[in-house]
């Protein structure tokens, strides 16, 4: 296998908007810390890459989350995200610093940017990774080859992808896939500024207007307790809400429930919805299609109620109950109340 002497360290793209850093960047830094810890002999660093305007002061926050070094590209052209200027800046940065691997959140922004950059530098890019490991056999030979695992065929099949002959090894990772490590405000690290050279400052795409989507009042990805409603619970959504209220949790749903018009898209969990990782996911009348499970199977505890003993949801649940939600949920509200007062 080819060796890449010049290429070092694990770089993480730290996405921000108006100075607010997206949590996924910190999740990736936390995971990168674990990865470098598996190859101590190589002396790899975790490097955060921060692009924007007026964001220099955020570098310390990135370090506190686990970066050894932060490269800041602070430029007026990077104030708001554009494929063009972000890709220009990032490619130059990669060409200069030569990261061995480069991780980006699989957010709408990350999935717009990373492929464009990968194509420009002809690097391998693995989309939507759910697990990353360093191949220890290769590491013994001084190569930090990443084994990147991702679901395909709607989550039915998993593939482990490697990038043997090109650098950097790039991957995008969905939010909430990796755990956030505790913050250490006293951590110190290096901050370096990088100035890209613009071949043009003329934008190719003009944003005429930004329309806020009618936002739901809650963010299901932040909820610690989720009660999920599927098509089987469409007749008793009020009860689902009551159970959530009793547990201090939030209601979310499957795509079927959104399609049937009972809930907003921002409550949808799954491949085309949100990825969640609560302490408890209580699935009510959800069949457990792979596209749904892809968004919630990392939950700490999954309890499901479904009247079909063969329902797929049972195979990913910690506890499954065969039963009719219309009958179980009213009793559950009372049992929870009783358990609270005990």
């Amino acid at each position: 296998m080819a060796k890449f002497e010049e290429y070092k360290d694990i770089y993480v793209f730290v996405e921000q908007e108006n100075g607010n850093i997206a949590e996924v960047g910190y999740e990736l830094i936390s995971e990168a810390r674990k990865l470098v810890a598996t190859i101590p002999a190589m002396g790899y660093k975790v490097v955060g890459v921060l692009l924007g305007n007026g964001i220099k002061d955020k570098a310390q926050e990135v370090i506190a989350h686990g970066a050894d070094k932060v490269i800041v590209v602070d430029d007026e052209l990077l104030k708001d995200y554009s494929t063009q200027f972000y890709a220009d800046a990032l490619t130059q940065l990669i060409n200069k610093y030569k990261p061995d691997s480069f991780l980006t959140g699989a957010t709408p922004l990350g999935r717009d940017l990373a492929p464009r950059v990968a194509a420009r530098i002809n690097a391998g890019l693995t989309a939507d990774a759910t697990k990353i490991e360093v191949d220890q056999e290769e590491a013994a030979n001084g190569v930090a080859l990443l084994d990147v695992t991702r679901p395909t065929f709607g989550g039915n099949l998993f593939g482990t992808i490697v990038c043997k002959n090109t650098r950097p090894q790039m991957a995008t990772i969905r939010p909430k896939v990796f755990e956030l490590a505790p913050v250490d405000e006293s951590r110190t690290g290096e901050v370096e500024e990088f100035k890209p050279t613009w071949t043009t400052t003329e934008p190719e795409v003009f944003v005429e207007k930004v329309i806020e989507k009618v936002k739901g009042d809650v963010d299901i990805t932040k909820a610690d307790i989720l009660v999920g409603a599927g098509r089987g619970a469409e007749g008793c959504l009020d009860l689902v809400q009551q159970v959530a209220d009793e547990l201090g949790g939030v209601v979310c749903c499957s795509r079927a429930v959104v399609e049937d018009g009972y809930m907003d898209k921002d409550r949808q969990v799954g491949q085309t919805g949100k990825t969640v990782r609560p302490s408890l996911y209580l699935a009510c009348g959800i069949s457990g299609a792979v596209q749904h499970c892809a968004g919630m199977d990392k939950s700490d505890m999954i309890i499901s109620i479904n009247r079909d003993p063969q329902a797929e949801i049972f195979s990913i649940s910690n506890m499954g109950f065969v039963g009719d939600v219309n009958k179980v949920l009213p009793l559950l509200v009372e049992s929870i109340k009783a358990a609270k007062s005990e």
Binding site: S317, M319, V322, G323, D324, K327, L331, L332
Partner: peptide, 12 residues
């Protein structure tokens, strides 16, 4: 997974 088939009250 453990899947239980119980009465509704027992389930709750």
């Amino acid at each position: 997974t453990e899947t239980f088939t119980l009465s509704e009250q027992e389930t709750a």
